[in-house]
Simulated scan of single mutants.
Amino acid sequence: MVRLLHCGSLAFLAVGLLGGPSQAHTVKASDSVAVTFHLEPDHNPRAGDPAQVWFVLTQKGGSTIPLSQCDCHLQVIAEENGQTIAQPPLTAVSAEQYQNIPGADVTFPKPGAYQLSIQGQPQTGDAFQPFQFSFPVTVAKGSSPKPSPPVQSTDTPLSSSKSGLPKVVWISISIGVGLSFVMLVLRLRKK
């Protein structure tokens, strides 16, 4: 029981410190094409920082359309005035389990609301119908290029201790050790 409690405390600590996996994808579809859209990092781009965007194009029936078979174009549109501010070139990228899908690096100039618009048609023949999809993107304030002045430490449970580790880590460890000790004492009393 003590080992189980100790392992549970460590798992709680690891999840709290590292966080769980998060992947955000947005899917839109027309009659003949579906598009899965993803924007790194985690659909939370920051102004002035490069962000990678990629699209998985899928034909009706489930087969993936590689960039080499699509005459695709990407536009970055500012919502405040509807102006196209960039047309980054699409290149073939590999992301997750997908290979040779359209992708681009996008740097948003300032915080605000944008639309990423992808349009495409078959390179040859009529393998799929021409399509156009737009995806809303909210861009957060970017990191300042100047170093920030040092901030006075506040003594809150989440601030760093003198050893350099956040107090939340020490609290979690203390709780785990304390619970393990209580369980050990209870176990010894039963004997």
Rank of each mutant, 00 (worst) to 15 (best):
Gly8Ala: 10
Ser22Ala: 15
Ser68Met: 11
Val33Ile: 15
Asp71Glu: 15
Thr84Leu: 02
Leu13Ala: 05
Gly62Ala: 04
Phe12Asn: 04
Ser9Met: 07
Val33Ser: 01
Ala29Thr: 15
Pro66Tyr: 06
Glu79Leu: 12
Val35Ser: 08
Glu40Trp: 10
Pro89Glu: 05
Val56Leu: 10
Pro41Asp: 09
Asp49Tyr: 13
Val15Tyr: 11
Gly16Val: 03
Gln23Asp: 09
Ala86Glu: 02
Glu80Val: 13
Leu17Tyr: 07
His6Met: 14
Gln87Met: 15
Leu18Tyr: 12
Gln83Leu: 05
Leu5Pro: 01
Ala86Gln: 09
Pro88Glu: 07
Glu80Ala: 14
Thr26Cys: 10
Gly8Trp: 12
Val56Trp: 00
Pro21Tyr: 11
Gln52Val: 08
Glu79Lys: 15
Ser94Lys: 02
Ile85Pro: 03
Ser32His: 06
Pro45Leu: 10
Gln23Leu: 12
Ile77Arg: 02
His43Lys: 04
Ser63Gly: 10
Leu18Ser: 07
Ser9Phe: 03
Glu80Asn: 13
Thr84Ser: 00
His43Trp: 02
Leu10His: 11
Arg46Gly: 06
Glu80Cys: 01
Cys70Asp: 13
Ala29Lys: 15
Ala95Trp: 11
Glu80Pro: 06
Gln59Met: 09
Ser9Lys: 00
Asp71Cys: 13
Gly62Tyr: 11
Ala24Cys: 04
Pro88Phe: 02
Gly16Thr: 06
Ser22Cys: 12
Leu90Glu: 08
Gln83Asp: 10
Leu13His: 01
Phe55Asp: 02
Pro41Ala: 10
Leu17Asn: 01
Pro66Cys: 05
Phe12Asp: 01
His73Ser: 13
Ala14Trp: 06
Leu90Met: 04
Leu57Ala: 01
Asn81Leu: 13
Pro21Cys: 08
Ser68Tyr: 06
Asp31Asn: 13
His25Tyr: 10
Trp54Met: 00
Ala92Arg: 02
Gly62Asn: 10
Ala14Cys: 05
His73Tyr: 13
Leu18Ala: 01
Ile77Glu: 04
Thr64Leu: 12
Pro88Thr: 12
Thr84Cys: 10
Val15Gly: 02
Pro66Asn: 07
Asp42Val: 04
Cys70Val: 13
Gly61Val: 10
His73Ala: 14
Ile77Ala: 00
His25Asn: 09
Asn44Cys: 01
Asp49Ala: 13
Gly20Val: 14
Trp54Asp: 10
Glu79Ala: 11
His43Gly: 06
Lys60Ala: 08
Thr84Asn: 04
Cys70Tyr: 06
Leu17Val: 00
Ala95Val: 15
Leu10Lys: 03
Val56Pro: 05
Phe37Glu: 09
Thr58Asp: 04
Gly8Lys: 13
Ser9Arg: 00
Asp49Gln: 15
Pro21Leu: 07
Val76Ser: 00
Thr36Trp: 00
Gln23Ser: 03
Trp54His: 05
Ala24Ser: 11
Val27Trp: 08
Ala47Ser: 08
Ala78Ser: 12
Gln59Ile: 06
Gln23Glu: 08
Val56Ala: 08
Cys70Thr: 15
Asp31Phe: 05
Pro21Ile: 07
Pro89Leu: 03
Gly20Met: 11
Thr36Pro: 00
Lys28Tyr: 02
Asp31Tyr: 12
Leu18Phe: 11
Phe12Ser: 07
Thr58Met: 06
Thr64Asn: 06
Ser22Lys: 14
Ser9Asp: 08
Lys28His: 08
Ile85Cys: 07
Gly82Asn: 09
Asp71Gln: 15
Thr84His: 03
Ser63Lys: 15
Val93Asn: 04
Val76Ile: 04
Gln83Trp: 02
Ser32Asn: 04
Cys70Trp: 14
Pro89Cys: 01
